[in-house]
Computed example of a mutant assay.
Amino acid sequence: MTRSRTHRVDGRDARWTAHREERRVQLTESALRAIRRHGAGVGMDEIAAEAGTSKTVIYRHLGDRLGLYLAVCASVDRLILADFSAALDRTDAARRPSSVDPRSVLIAAIDSYLALVENDPEVYRFVTRPPQVQVPRDSDPVIGLSASIAERLSDLLAANLREGGRDEALAPILAAGLVGFVRESADSWVTDPQRVPRAEIVEQLAEFAAVGLNGFIENHQRES
């Protein structure tokens, strides 16, 4: 009897855990819709109205405003990383990482990032400029996302450095610098009321970064 009762309790616990997770997803999606509708400065009342519930329910499932922010960021991060990885996987350079010219990789990576910025600007602003919350640096999702993207780029840059005779140990810091360059460029581009088309800025940023990397390799080859 005890074993059977334990199994029933475990089953209820599992169903309740699944229900809570499903509710978190629903509330996060409601928050994203509210951000798109009302802008990055959206209030909890507006999010609750979009979800058709009360702020108390949101706090119960997501915690305080920081918890809501982190849940939104986690959802956006998964989307960015999925699009970023898919974009890189489609490039010839990703399939043949020994290619010295990284331009196709850079175009794919930058375009996947700027696509989100262009298509979801208010969500992007909400994530990168969190309103009314103090985010601990050791759990900052923007830093974590940048590190994940840089790690993927680092593997590809290492192949280019190695092929060009440079120390591939430099790849992680170069990748981190590239991510910072693209992010700051995106921040400036998305706020420009007369911004150039995305395809054009992607080409320009990729060319700038590729010329810098190729020059870095070529200078070493000339000096060797």
Rank of each mutant, 00 (worst) to 15 (best):
S185Y: 10
V182L: 09
R36A: 15
L79W: 09
V9N: 14
D111C: 00
I149Q: 15
D120I: 05
Q26R: 10
V42C: 02
L114Q: 03
A51H: 00
P130W: 05
A93T: 11
R95T: 05
A86E: 11
V72P: 04
G180D: 15
Q134K: 09
I143M: 06
R195P: 04
A18H: 06
Q204F: 11
D187E: 15
R24E: 03
G39E: 04
L170E: 14
A109E: 05
R65A: 09
D140R: 01
L66C: 08
L116V: 08
E218N: 12
V190S: 05
D192R: 07
L88E: 07
S154I: 06
G165H: 10
I80E: 03
V123I: 13
L27P: 01
A176G: 07
R20L: 12
I143R: 11
D92K: 08
A210S: 15
H7L: 14
H61C: 04
E118H: 11
P141G: 08
I58C: 01
S139Y: 05
D101A: 02
V127Q: 06
Q26F: 01
R60C: 02
A94S: 12
A93R: 09
S112I: 00
H7K: 12
R183G: 14
D155Q: 12
R95S: 15
T91H: 00
A34D: 00
I58M: 02
I173W: 11
A49K: 05
N219D: 14
C73G: 13
R20T: 13
G180W: 03
R96L: 09
V202L: 08
A51Y: 05
L79S: 13
R166H: 01
D64L: 00
E223Y: 12
G165C: 05
S112T: 04
A186E: 05
H220K: 10
L79K: 09
R3Y: 08
P197Q: 05
R20A: 15
I80A: 14
R36K: 14
L153M: 15
A158S: 11
W16F: 14
E21C: 02
T2I: 11
I35Q: 02
S99T: 10
Q26N: 01
I217Y: 06
A31N: 03
S139M: 13
R195A: 15
R183K: 12
A147D: 13
L153P: 01
R103A: 12
T191Y: 07
V179C: 10
A175S: 13
A94K: 02
T2C: 09
D101P: 02
V190M: 13
I107E: 15
S104H: 12
D187V: 03
D192N: 15
A34F: 02
L170C: 08
V117G: 04
E151R: 12
G144W: 03
E203S: 13
R23Q: 13
T28G: 08
E184C: 09
I173D: 14
R152P: 00
P141Y: 06
V76S: 03
P136I: 00
Q194W: 08
S30M: 02
A150Y: 02
I201D: 07
D111W: 00
T17M: 13
R33Y: 03
